[in-house]
Amino acid sequence: MNLFSKKDAKSMTVAEQFVSKVEQEALSNKIRVYAPMILLVFMTIVFSIYDSHFFSLKNLVNVLGQMAVPLILATGLTFVLLLGRIDLSVEGVMGLVGSAISLLVLNSRNANDWGIWGVILPLLLGTLCGFITGFLHVKLKIASFIITYAISTIVSGVAVLLYNSRPATVKAQWIIDASQTYFLKIPLITWIAIIFYLICAVILNYTAFGRAVYAIGDNEAAAAASGINVQKVVIEVFVLSGFAASLAGLVALIRLKLGQVSLGENQMFPCITALVVGGTSLNGGKGGMLQTMVGILIYMELLNFLTIIGVSADYKNAIQGVIIIIAVALTITRGRKVIAK
């Protein structure tokens, strides 16, 4: 009934209506894809005009140095968000892995000196956390945000227990050296982040696994019907996210050299902000690695700018909260109910 009355009012055939609707959607999709990039360019120009220090090589290197942790986390989270899930456990896993490494390599608290194994074993531990999260999420059918929230609480609790409220300082020379190594003026840790990002971009865009992630995020039932092992892919994505969080924990430890739970504090929320601002949908199926990079760059520029003009850290958190609500309101696809499975 509605359709007919509309047709009469606009004197269009159904086919014409359909065509115009498709065209409109294609246009709004295009705008949605390019808007974050335009925003990034726009922000760079405005900030440069406002403060001449902003667009300097020194500041660029500074921004790149701070980018390592958010980029690694966001890369892992991209897969999770593409599935329409969410992973709140990354902060806890970061804290756990950072604390574990600081206790296993040469440190101020105990006599351990496991060398490279002191890094590899905690990384495996963090990846195992990702596996447990994914396994419980899939097998027990618990919503991802609840299970990951619970896991985050558990692992950060375990981390504090590991160092018993007295965090260890890293004394291993090779980790201290790693924090002071630069290549082309860019810190080594940023190179680690960029390499991880590129590998994940290849996995997402050129493998069957990557296509399965998009398919499941778009329509889980259809993906299952077409023969994709949904449970397996979901678990693998959580394993990947767990590994990303572990790597981020290592990088954060290299920067701070003090192994405590707060390594991961206030890291997850900005990353999700950046992903959503970049154009990755929380409903799943939309987004990608390019959007992730644009989102992270927007976030880092904003953060850098707020620091340059002298906004304190507490206000930054509040400002981020306001920004993400606006960004989500502008970018989210309306009408779909399932948000965090």
Partner: peptide, 16 residues
């Protein structure tokens, strides 16, 4: 310090 660990486990068990 065990409290958070216990709450996390309790929450998972209860929801499951």
């Amino acid at each position: 310090l065990w409290k958070n660990v216990v709450y996390g486990v309790v929450l998972i068990a209860a929801v499951a």
